[in-house]
Write a protein that binds this DNA or RNA. Structure first.
Length: 218
DNA sequence: TTGTCGATTGAG
DNA sequence: TCAATCGACAAT
């Protein structure tokens, strides 16, 4: 089934599981890489303390407030790019972080991009295991933010959903987001079972617990 | 203008 | 377990 914008216009929580199993193709740099999404995370707007859009619109997160189906890439830890697909209605911020994928075609290109950055090779299953690794094999950086993934002329396109169509896959798993301290109580991570590319879980970083006030409040 | 920290990764 | 490495944003 073809992916349309309406399908992506729901909340991040609704859209995230639907993207599991979808295929994404990048022809950036003249080399084609095709992947099947195996792991994602939902990020809402004002109601999600872990979202880049939590404190309102800024230059960086502006695309999250626009129409669904656009690419949102951000730079993190001074060296990595991570990619999201925007969702929700215009005016409402929401996006789905692409955390891992299985490489269906273009593995040599993916491997070459990895070696170029790390000086070392990865096993096929790990080439796109993790948001920064996935963005790397696809050649995605900040300059690609805003690209319409539903436009056939775009160098990066969301091509198709699995046979099930607009429904989430029959079998998938959910859990807390990886490396996110805020709003950790919600299962906003979705992944396909038995997929070697799915990244390892890691609890959120320091939450800087408000003072080590062990004693009870007055 | 300055200081803090991050939706991570790879080496040790 | 920890360093790398820098842009965004809140605080000054």
């Amino acid at each position: 089934m073809r992916i349309d914008r309406e399908l992506l216009s729901g909340s991040a929580l609704q859209v995230a599981p639907v993207l599991l199993g979808a295929t994404l193709v990048s022809s950036i740099g003249g080399a084609e890489v095709l992947v099947r999404i195996t792991e994602v995370e939902a990020y809402e707007g004002a109601l999600d303390a872990a979202s880049h859009a939590f404190r309102g619109q800024t230059k960086r997160n502006a695309v999250m407030f626009g129409e669904a189906g656009r690419l949102y890439c951000y730079f993190v830890y001074g060296m990595h790019w991570c990619a999201n697909i925007t969702c929700g209605r215009p005016g409402t911020a929401a996006a789905v972080l692409l955390r891992a994928a299985r490489i269906l075609d273009g593995e040599p290109v993916a491997q070459a991009r990895t070696v170029a950055r790390t000086q070392s090779r990865h096993s096929p299953a790990k080439l796109a295991s993790g948001p920064a690794r996935l963005a790397r094999v696809l050649g995605l950086t900040g300059e690609h933010t805003g690209l319409d993934l539903l436009d056939r002329r775009s160098p990066v396109q969301l091509t198709a959903l699995p046979a099930a169509g607009a429904e989430p896959p029959a079998d998938y798993r959910t859990g807390p987001r990886v490396g996110v301290a805020a709003a950790a109580e919600h299962p906003w991570r979705f992944w396909l079972p038995d997929e070697p590319s799915v990244s390892a879980y890691r609890p959120g970083g320091r939450k800087r617990v408000a003072a080590t006030r062990q004693t009870d409040a007055p």
